[in-house]
């Protein structure tokens, strides 16, 4: 279980990205974060595994405060939390296999991993992860030879290698076309339901949010402005939507995927 208490992030240049945010994520949830670009979604996700240092507040991960963790204990928390990214963040010139195996770096002996040596069991595991996302035949290709959808599947396989309890997904489908978006979110839904891995995912398109989320939180200018169940988001009113996406936003719903970006 993850509990965020009074989380604030102020960047060095004075930008306030998160203002005193508190919420809880229960195990097994598919929590979707919505909000305009710049509303603090990415900052929030990166504060949870400390890719970004929070300024104030507590991040309680199964009772331990991640905000205070350092060195070894921080790395232990990180390996329990997988992450996938909008731009996939694969090492482009390395093979797909190497990219997937990198998911084990938190577990293997550092000295041997530096020479790209991984135990046999890890290689088998990597193969299974690639099988799960259906790209075993691409294992020896360079990552940048793959299409966008395939690269994101490699990203998912890498996250799965960590045996994570939770996966953070930072706009995982924003660089993909609508069909691929459903395919990728389908994998995440499968992981969430069948492996009982908590998912925390930021999304832009309301119909995707309505289809996949079990719960939704909304951010606006670093403030938590919305919290609702899947049933509630399905009934979301224009007023509430404008509250999150701003006065100028136009409601987008089913069919919006071909219509452009957020709002």
């Amino acid at each position: 279980m993850l509990e965020i208490r009074n989380l604030t992030k102020i960047y060095n240049d004075g930008t306030v990205a998160l203002k005193n945010i508190s919420f809880k994520v229960e195990d097994g949830e598919f929590l979707v974060i919505i909000g305009l670009s710049g509303s603090g979604k990415s900052t929030l996700l990166r504060c949870i595994n400390r890719l970004i240092e929070p300024t104030e507040g507590e991040i309680l991960w199964n009772g331990k405060d991640v905000a205070k963790a350092d060195g070894r204990s921080l790395r232990e928390v990180r390996r329990q939390i997988g992450m996938i990214f909008q731009h996939f963040n694969l090492v482009k010139r390395s093979s797909v296999m190497t990219n997937v195996l990198a998911g084990r770096l938190g577990y293997v002996k550092p000295s041997s991993s530096l020479l790209h040596h991984f135990p046999k069991s890890d290689r088998k595991k990597a193969f299974e992860a690639l099988e799960m996302v259906g790209i075993t035949d691409q294992a020896e290709k360079r990552a940048d030879e793959l299409s966008g959808g395939q690269q994101q599947r490699v990203g998912i396989a890498r996250a799965l290698m960590q045996d994570p309890l939770m996966i953070l997904a930072d706009e995982p489908v924003a660089s993909l076309d609508p069909v691929l978006a459903h395919s990728i979110l389908g994998y995440l839904e499968d992981i969430n339901k069948n492996r009982n891995i908590t998912i925390m995912c930021s999304l832009h398109y309301l119909d995707l949010v309505q289809q996949y989320s079990s719960r939704v939180i909304g951010l606006r200018d670093g403030n938590l402005v919305y919290e609702g169940s899947n049933a509630e988001i399905r009934k979301m009113t224009d007023g509430e939507f404008k509250e999150i996406y701003g006065e100028e936003a136009v409601r987008v719903n089913a069919g919006s995927l071909t219509g452009g970006d957020n709002a």
Binding site: R75, R78, M83, N89, V91, T98, G106
Partner: peptide, 20 residues
Amino acid sequence: GPIEAIQATGANKLQTIMFA
């Protein structure tokens, strides 16, 4: 991007340099 991704797996500094 890759540096961020490798860090997120729980890799240490040297591993991050070697892999990302």
